[in-house]
């Protein structure tokens, strides 16, 4: 089990003959993704890494029954590629390309939604369900099959978090990079919902950054609807206001979008926020040990789990982790609340 992509995913690669497209088509295929087709107008009839190439997504879908598409075409053509995929009946479109104009995306978003499709990205690393399917550019070597769902606005920072989990022996159900742009197809809440509904996901890691209020909205959603433990991370505490930090979305404007506000919002609803990606697995272990409402022994287990956290953070010499600690306390309270809600 997993979110959005799995063994049934049949992938068409848009822009398959390009430098990035061909490289990653091969990588995805090697990982075991069912890559059924590629599209490059004018290159129909050829093959890339044994994958048949078509002139249009429509042709590719007609011949191969592809249900998912991934986009590697250059920015000036990527908006068109999203429309093309959706019009061809693709239900999941993953846009890796970065640099799409936000105003175009404001029109794309409702178009995709109205047709019952989902867009992930743009400007994202894609997603991977370890052992089942990989769509995008995430390095397969860092993931491991398991029961943690990871959702993030970032790319390499996500790898850092996934790697920390894998090193700690905590595998993943699905890792999703939703992208760092202003207007994105799939946000935290969509992914939280998917993880909440996915039975094999036992815990969720959410990696946010400065800009906008998606993390605050996610915190509200988690309080209302998510019963599984969530660990957070927010990048950009050292970022000055008014400067765009690489991602189009990562900018503190008009006193909103601050990292500290996001951390507070998450802590308030019982979500501990790690100060370094390295702390994520320990925090998750703590929650998984203490956060199971139906186990009577949960309470007595907590001190032991806390020791584990203390041990870990001592290992990384981060004794200043007050935000983390207060988050943990609140987390304990919140899981208590969950108990009564559940019954």
């Amino acid at each position: 089990m997993s979110a959005f992509i799995n063994k049934r995913t049949k992938l068409v690669v848009q822009g398959i003959t390009g430098r990035d497209g061909s490289f990653h088509a091969e990588q995805m295929k090697a990982y075991g993704t069912n890559v059924v087709a590629g599209v490059t107008p004018g290159k129909g009839g050829s093959k890339v890494a044994g994958i048949p190439v078509f002139n249009s997504v429509e042709d590719a879908v007609a011949k191969t029954k592809a249900n998912t598409s991934v986009i590697y075409v250059p920015p000036a053509f990527a908006v068109d590629a999203i429309y093309e995929a959706v019009d061809a009946g693709i239900k999941l479109v993953v846009c890796i390309t970065e640099g799409l104009p936000a105003n175009d995306m404001m029109k794309v978003y409702p178009y995709v939604k109205d047709r019952g499709a989902r867009l992930i990205g743009p400007n994202c690393p894609g997603l991977i369900s370890p052992g089942e399917s990989k769509v995008g550019i995430m390095p397969a070597s860092i993931v491991k099959k398991g029961n943690i769902g990871v959702v993030s606005r970032s790319g390499t920072l996500t790898y850092e978090a996934i790697w920390a989990l894998t090193e700690a022996g905590m595998g993943q159900t699905t890792c999703i990079g939703i992208g760092g742009d202003q207007v994105i197809g799939t946000n935290f809440i969509d992914c939280l919902e998917a993880f909440e509904n996915d039975r094999s996901t036992k815990g969720i890691v959410m990696i946010g950054e400065i800009g906008g209020s998606d993390e605050e909205e996610a915190a509200k959603y988690i309080k209302k609807y998510v019963t599984k433990p969530v660990v957070g991370f927010i990048a950009g505490q050292a970022a000055p206001p008014g400067k765009r930090m690489g991602h189009a979305g990562a900018i503190i404007s008009g006193g909103s979008g601050l990292a500290v506000d996001k951390i507070t919002a998450l802590n308030k609803v019982g979500i501990p926020v790690a100060l370094s990606p390295i702390q994520i697995p320990a925090l998750m272990k703590e929650l998984l040990a203490g956060g199971k409402p139906l186990k009577a022994k949960a309470k007595t287990k907590k001190p032991a789990a806390k020791k584990a956290v203390a041990g870990k953070s001592a290992g990384s010499k981060s004794t200043k982790s007050t935000a983390v600690k207060s988050g943990l306390k609140k987390a304990a309270k919140a899981t208590g609340k969950n108990k009564s809600v559940k019954r």
Binding site: G155, A235, A238, H247, A250, P277, K320
Partner: peptide, 15 residues
């Protein structure tokens, strides 16, 4: 490499 990781690195420097 990567905006998110760059921000996280800056945060840790400060931390």
């Amino acid at each position: 490499n990567g905006a998110g990781l760059a921000m996280a690195t800056m945060d840790l420097v400060k931390h």
